[in-house]
Design a protein around this nucleic acid. Structure first.
Lengths: 344, 344
DNA sequence: AACATCTTGGAAAACGTTACCCGCATCTCG
DNA sequence: CGAGATGCGGGTAACGTTTTCCAAGATGTT
């Protein structure tokens, strides 16, 4: 069964112009709210647009100027925290002419390079890069090509704006909470990192730093105990197994991310232990699943929604004025106490 | 601090041609592996491309032909089942020149229209629409504009390919499993639906149908009991509260989706009940979180990965030959028994 | 040797927009 | 009333590709 016979040529600006009895310039002016179009002409043109169902071609527009497209690079589509950020972005961009397109699952540097190149090739008007691994140098090159906002990475740049949560403070909140409950042997599962720049800029490294600092501040320096794996469920599982095998088993585990805490709970179940009866467990991110009743994980809320809103706002600002100085937004995390942590 | 002074004009095909001492036509031919380029010239051109770091502009390409972009429309980025589909799509497209871009969170018909229009405007080479609510008529109009694959919706079309799981069979698997465990009062939480076309085509409706049919096949017709809410965690929560308030409380609840089952477990926790001790609970989709140890939900596996792989393959086929007859792929679900269901 | 065919490369015309500039009316102000 | 603004509309040249063509030389066929 072959497809319909009519390939149906697209309606172009020329068709609209002819139908309204004006020039293409006029139509373009109306489309862009540009100067030099009487209200009478605007009406005529808009009527023609509606009648013909005309929609401008983004490709053609891109060749001359804007594409009205904003790219969002996501490292991991499974982490529900990123969904919160997206909601914030969408909320801010709703009602504008911009369309958000997401590129997901670029979980390593070459993958990220591929995605950002693709966004540049497609003449996107701006990009929001979420927790990128890409080197600083490359990030700045990208930002030199198109308006860029980097989310969830610390450090200051003269060419791109940043939005991040204060992970140092956040880690401190968890340690303080656990210490207050009487815990002393508080262990941390971190995402392994050796790259020197990332050790300063990446959230995971800052959280680990915040953990160490807070432990010392509570005079618990001697109990600092880290398992170094990855920010995945698997990483949490493996990290917990390491920690449970220690001669001095910790009484509380601070997982660097909720998804890591899931892996910890998994390992506890397997070892016939439970939280908080045997071991207190805390996460980070306050994802939807942390709030889920049967889990009810103590965690840190990053206000993903606000992160997204801020990122989108900064991007729009930069699109409209590429020469303004860069901005760094740092948001304050809050502690969310639930049922996986208890007094010792 | 103003941004760098060099806007750095993009390298174009003209620059490459000049640098290699050939025509732009020649460069284009090499780029597209078109006929009429000696291997000697290919080498020259490729060298120039590498030296200059040239990348073709997708906008300009789109104006003449392909954009090498494939759009994926996702109704809900929080449902991890869709992530499995995406993985399948990416796996199939990896290594090709196509870039996948996702538009998410269009959870109603106007939202979907907005997204599909945006994809058409951007001259995408093809789209994969996942569980769309859009009317059949509009779907066919979209498919008339660009290659389209519809995922997770039953029914046959002459203009677009489809990939779906056999939800009717899947619902039967759950009912059979529960009946075998001795349950008779097996209730179902469905996604409310009144639109007549969708009652036939949407997975939720087919699952509800499969449930009814299987109940009768097991001579349990008199115990058919439905709560009609939505496929969300909230929907599961509300549905479960309804069912728990029935004079004849069910002994097993079949939730139409894992995310719904989460809500059910939530409601059980709140009512100081637990699964499977007090009530057996089953979901549908086998999402990552169903496999999560502390939850360990009995469910139906849809092989999201294979769904994605098939959808991407069909799309590539249609892009290369838009006149071949349409294909309907129907995959068979499998039962995954875990720890939320037990003998009565 | 004459003719047909194939190979290799290039010139030039699209594709659909927007930006720049120009021309004509119509005001405004001394 | 003349000169300068101002308002309004259009002509046309880009933007960076791909896609016809077409020409010229090489090769093969009678």
């Amino acid at each position: 069964m072959p497809r319909g016979p009519a390939p149906a040529r697209r309606v172009t600006i020329i068709d609209v112009a002819r139908h309204a009895g004006v020039s293409t310039t006029a139509v373009s002016k109306v489309l862009n709210n540009a100067y030099g179009a009487s209200s009478q002409m605007q009406a005529k043109v808009r009527a023609a647009i509606d009648e013909l169902g005309y929609r401008p071609s983004a490709s053609a527009r891109g060749l001359r100027g804007q594409t009205y497209t904003i790219g969002v690079m996501l490292p991991d589509i499974r982490n529900p925290f990123f969904a919160d950020i997206l909601d914030g972005i969408n909320a801010q961009l709703d009602g504008t002419d911009y369309q958000v397109l997401i590129a997901a699952s670029c979980n390593n540097e070459p993958g990220e390079a591929h995605v950002t190149d693709a966004m540049i090739d497609r003449n996107m008007d701006g990009v929001i890069l979420i927790a990128p691994l890409t080197s600083r140098q490359r990030l700045e090159r990208i930002a030199g090509t198109m308006p860029t906002v980097v989310v969830g990475r610390h450090g200051h740049s003269a060419v791109y704006d940043t939005v991040a949560d204060d992970d140092f403070v956040g880690a401190g909140l968890i340690v303080a909470h656990l210490a207050e409950l009487g815990h002393r042997r508080i262990a941390h599962i971190e995402h392994h990192e050796t790259n020197p720049v990332r050790l300063i800029e990446m959230p995971n490294a800052v959280r680990a730093d915040g953990y160490r600092h807070a432990m010392r501040a509570h005079s618990l320096g001697e109990h600092i105990d880290l398992a170094s794996t990855t920010y995945t469920q698997q990483g949490g599982y493996l990290g917990a197994k390491q920690l449970l095998a220690r001669p001095q088993r910790p009484t509380a585990i601070f997982a660097g991310a909720d998804i890591v805490a899931m892996g910890v709970l998994d390992a506890l179940t397997e070892a016939s232990l439970s939280a908080p009866a045997d071991i207190s467990v805390a996460g980070y991110d306050n994802t939807t699943f942390a709030a889920f009743g049967p889990i009810s994980l103590t965690t840190v809320d990053q206000a993903g929604n606000q992160i997204g809103t801020n990122a989108a706002r900064l991007l729009l600002d930069r699109i409209s004025d590429n020469n303004r100085p860069t901005t760094q937004v740092k948001l304050s995390p809050t502690l969310v106490v639930r049922r996986t942590t208890a007094p010792l």
